[in-house]
């Protein structure tokens, strides 16, 4: 009986510190990487401004959330930010459409090389970053309200009688649910609608898509709109789960790129897979397994160290190492995307 409780406790530990955080972080990365992969598939460049697009959308959402809070509006147990999301998305769509009209369209019509697009996206990154910092400042912002937990560690312990607790935050639950719904909608759109098929065709073979009568400007416009929706939601969920800080969003660029490439860039399913691969690797490599082994091993073999493979500060290294490995072994990514 004792052995069984220990085993369950170890599982609860893993669930609490690896599975739940990995799933929610992975969903956030997946949504972000989807935006990167769509832009890559349709516009054919690596968008360095994507992290800041997320920051921009989240910022608008936060501002609207604060305003709603000041008006006394709330969603009860759910965060008010959900109500503010549509406005955030709207502004982000505007931002992306305006940047496309003023920046990228010119290069598209002049058939510029991808590197030029990339450098242009750095310029856009600077400008967006400047706007975000100017409006909301460079510091941490919290905007989470409503209920904090779906399951509290204390309640879980009381309920099960175990010594280890499982806690699931509302933000984590929301992230996972919203990600599933969003991804389902996206795939329905890409597989079943006329515009979605036009997008896939354009991504697959631009010339033939044009010969089939696909309107490139429309495809690009829809791509930016979807990117804006994904980026704003991903950014807001990340901000609710952790916190909002413009610089953190810039840094998210690396794991998101890694996710998109690892999965196979240009391939939406790959982006999702890549998001979870990167997230789980980060969480698993930086988790200290000491307690798990205390439960699993007999007392005499109790480990001394923390049994942590890498300190949490090296989580970027994890995404990078996976990225390099994939590039070396299989440059097209796990699910055969395009070669960059």
């Amino acid at each position: 009986m004792e052995a069984l409780t220990d085993l369950v406790s170890a599982l609860v530990l893993i669930l609490n510190f690896i599975v739940v955080p990995g799933l929610s972080y992975g969903s956030q990365l997946a949504l972000g990487a989807l935006g990167i992969t769509l832009v890559f598939g349709i516009l054919r460049f690596a968008n360095f401004a994507h992290g800041d697009t997320m920051a921009f959308g989240t910022m608008i959402t936060i501002l609207v959330t604060w305003w709603l809070q000041a008006q006394g509006v709330s969603l009860g147990p759910l965060p008010t930010a959900l109500l503010a999301l549509p406005i955030g998305i709207l502004f982000t769509v505007l931002l992306l459409v305006i940047t496309d009209k003023t920046v990228y369209r010119y290069y598209r019509h002049h058939k510029a090389v991808p590197v030029t697009f990339m450098i242009a996206s750095m310029g856009v990154m600077f400008m967006t970053n400047g706007i975000v910092r100017f409006v909301i400042g460079p510091n941490d912002q919290r905007f989470l309200d409503g209920e904090r937990f779906i399951v509290r560690a204390r309640d879980f312990k009381a309920m099960t009688g175990l010594s280890e607790g499982l806690s699931i935050k509302v933000s984590q639950g929301l992230t996972i649910v919203i990600a599933i719904v969003l991804v389902a909608l996206l795939f329905w759109f890409l597989q079943k609608t006329r515009t979605g098929k036009a997008m896939r065709a354009y991504s697959d073979n631009e010339d033939l898509a044009l010969l089939s009568g696909v309107d490139p400007d429309r495809v690009v416009l829809v791509t930016w709109i979807i990117t804006a929706i994904l980026a704003t939601i991903a950014g807001t969920l990340y901000g609710l789960d952790k916190s909002f800080k413009p610089f953190t969003y810039l840094q998210l660029l690396l794991p998101m790129f890694a996710a998109a490439i690892v999965g196979g860039i240009g391939n939406p399913i790959g982006a999702i897979l890549g998001g979870y691969v990167i997230a789980f690797s980060e969480v698993m490599v930086t988790y200290a397994y000491k307690k798990v082994f205390i439960y699993l091993l007999p007392q005499s073999l109790e480990p001394e160290g923390l049994l942590q493979l890498l300190s949490t500060d090296y989580k970027f290294a994890v995404s990078f190492v996976i990225l390099v490995l994939v590039l070396l072994v299989r440059p097209t990514g796990i699910l055969r995307g395009k070669v960059l």
Binding site: A46, P114, L254
Partner: peptide
Amino acid sequence: VALGLRADYLAIATLGISEI
């Protein structure tokens, strides 16, 4: 590691290594 691949990969790889 990164040079035989195309320009975009080098960009992302160098971005990563600098963070590390």
